[in-house]
């Protein structure tokens, strides 16, 4: 039963992280290079530009769900299971979502890299 609970938290984390990542990536594309903004207009302006973006605020909401689910999950299971399992599944969902919702050109090279990393993370979790 504990295993069912742990995997339920992993599924919730994968979904909330994917939605959060897509929203954050979209927000940052709108804001532009933060490093450049910081050097030209100062740190305050860069933080303000990032934090006042609507997509960023929505992303934070989803990351908060993911964070509290992580706390519960870590209270039940090992770090070496929870983090790699969540990460490797998120690799696949993020690659698909980035192609669909962000229009990123996920070419053969990126798919190969994603699959290699995903398999590697799964092996680390064993």
């Amino acid at each position: 039963m504990k295993l069912v609970y742990t995997w339920s938290t992993i599924v919730i984390m994968v979904l909330s992280t994917t939605v959060g990542d897509i929203l954050l990536a979209r927000a940052m594309k709108q804001v532009g290079d933060l490093g450049l903004l910081r050097r030209t207009k100062g740190l305050g302006a860069a933080v303000k530009a990032a934090m006042l973006n609507a997509d960023m605020l929505a992303a934070l909401l989803f990351f908060a769900v993911g964070f509290f689910t992580l706390l519960v999950s870590l209270s039940w299971a090992d770090l070496s299971l929870v983090v790699p399992a969540t990460a490797s599944l998120t690799f696949v969902t993020n690659a698909i979502a980035a192609k669909l919702f962000l229009g990123e050109k996920v070419d053969g090279r990126r798919w190969i890299a994603n699959i290699l990393v995903c398999l590697g993370v799964m092996l680390l979790a064993k």
Binding site: I22, A25, G35, A87, F91, R110, L124
Partner: peptide
């Protein structure tokens, strides 16, 4: 981490940043 992640996503694709950070494992 979040500050660095946001900064990375401001100049790189999500599908580029993800594998790059898996070096953490």
């Amino acid at each position: 981490f979040f500050a660095a992640y946001s900064s990375a996503l401001s100049w790189a694709d999500l599908t580029y940043v993800m594998p790059a950070t898996s070096l953490g494992y």
